[in-house]
Every structure is written in C-alpha cells, then in structure tokens.
C-alpha cells in the first residue's frame, strides 16, 4: 500500500514542514518513505513544493508521476499541480487563496477555507495544518494518532506550537466530516 502526496504553495506557507510532518509520521510507524523537496532554483522566487511517498513495502521509483493526493495552498500551486492527481485521487485546495473555476470531475476536490480558519485561530501560518487535517481521512497509511506523535517530535524545540498545530489539524478533519 502507498500514499503519494504532493504539497505546494508560497514560500513561507510551511510546505516543507507539512511534508516533514508526513515523513516523520511514516518514520515513527516504520513505513518506508521518501521526502522529496524542490531544490535549487525552484526554492527561489516564492513558490515551494515537495512530495512525500509513504509505503508499507520497498519504494522503487521515487518519482511521482500521478499522485494519490495533493495539497495546494494557493492558486499558482493549484494551476500547476491539480493535473498531477490521479483519477480517483484527492485534491485539498486552500479555498481562501485559490478560487477555482473549471474543476476536474474525476477526483475528489476538498475546498477548505484554510487561511480563514487559521486566521480565526489567530495564526495564518497554520493553514498548512488545516489542510493536512482535511487530507488525513483520505490517507491509507497514517492517521491522526501517528501525526500527533510526529508533531510532538517536530515541535520539541518549540512546544508552544504543538497544541495550535494539532488543533488546526483537528479543525481540518472536522471540516471534512461536516461537509
């Protein structure tokens, strides 16, 4: 079983961190995994993306052709990556920053006002976690409890972030459950 996820957004929206949360969740549960950042010139100029592959067996190709899911935190990310989700896959769109016109009908699109939800929590920087929460129910190999453990480790130097991140994730999960 595998989960191939692409994440993209502006630099500063915490795209790489989002990927690392998934990666450490996989690491803690002894999954095979790859965390693949965009690097070099792609790091400059304000857009960022990374991908994570989680698997319960060996990962051969670590190049994602068609992803099982994607999280796009803004419009340019939506434009670039919505086509990379495989038919039947899931696309989490930060609807606060990406207004979609023509949308694909062969994938599940979750439009979540992540930035607005994050703003309500008083921290616009955790829109990424709200989106992660929206993605979690669609993941095959990890769930909230594994994410919780990974987050504990990732925020060990700044424990004040633990609670707000976890709350943001729960809000994302609640949004999906109630819509």
């Amino acid at each position: 079983m595998m989960d191939k996820v692409i994440m993209a957004g502006f630099g500063g929206q915490g795209v790489m961190f989002l990927g690392k949360v998934l990666a450490y969740a996989g690491m803690n549960t002894d999954l095979e995994l790859c965390w693949i950042p965009s690097y070099g010139p792609e790091m400059r100029g304000g857009t960022a993306n990374c991908s994570v592959i989680l698997a319960d067996g060996e990962i051969y190709s670590h190049v994602i052709d068609q992803a099982d899911a994607a999280i796009v935190l803004n419009k340019p990310a939506y434009d670039k990556f919505s086509s990379r989700v495989k038919p039947g896959g899931v696309l989490i769109v930060n609807a606060s920053l990406a207004k979609i016109e023509k949308e694909r009908d062969d994938i599940t699109i979750v439009k979540i006002p992540a930035t607005e939800i994050a703003n309500e929590m008083g921290n616009p920087a955790i829109a990424n976690m709200v989106c992660l929460g929206a993605l979690l129910p669609s993941m095959n190999l990890i769930d909230y409890s594994t994410i919780e453990k990974a987050m504990d480790k990732l925020t060990s130097k700044r424990p004040q972030l633990l609670e707000s991140n976890l709350t943001a994730i729960k809000k994302g999960m609640d949004f999906v459950a109630s819509n």
Binding site: M27, L33, C34, I36, I59
Partner: peptide
C-alpha cells in the same frame, strides 16, 4: 545526483 542528495529517506 541532486535528486538523491536532496531526498530524505530512512
């Protein structure tokens, strides 16, 4: 190569 160099794996 750069892809192997930048990718994180256990």
């Amino acid at each position: 190569d750069g892809y192997l160099g930048q990718t994180m794996e256990p």
